[in-house]
């Protein structure tokens, strides 16, 4: 059991370091920066919406379209990382497999482009 926990020690270290860095960045800004606050400036950023408002409000569906398209390509790209790391071991077949995958993805991209999903107007 201790050995299992020991395996997670680097994570703890990463966590600690990120806390330190985040604290340093925010703290430096607070200490060194020039403060000229007004209400608009200090509200949380919410993609152009009022931060506190009726949740059941109509808004443009294109936000979602963009978001979903982004997520799809984002996720698919995530597949590239393990592939890239192990490329040396999976050989030509592995390389071609990913090309096949990417070409399918490319067709999808072509489709959404032609359909005008990427145009805002």
């Amino acid at each position: 059991m201790p050995s299992v926990l020991g395996d997670y020690a680097p994570v703890l270290v990463f966590g600690a370091i990120s806390v330190v860095i985040a604290a340093a960045m925010l703290g430096m800004a607070l200490v060194c920066g020039q403060q000229k606050p007004y209400p608009e400036k200090v509200t949380a950023y919410e993609c152009g919406f009022e931060a506190f408002d009726d949740a059941r409000r109509r808004f443009d569906v294109r936000f979602y379209l963009v978001a979903i398209l982004f997520i799809i390509f984002d996720l698919e790209v995530a597949f590239l990382f393990p592939w890239a790391v192990s490329l040396s071991r999976i050989g030509l077949f592995g390389f071609l497999s990913m090309l096949g995958f990417l070409s399918v993805l490319g067709i999808g991209f072509l489709y959404e482009w032609r359909k005008g999903a990427l145009d805002w107007d």
Partner: peptide, 10 residues
């Protein structure tokens, strides 16, 4: 299916 999709969207 992919071919038809490309054909159709063009």
């Amino acid at each position: 299916g992919l071919v038809i999709l490309v054909f159709g969207v063009l």
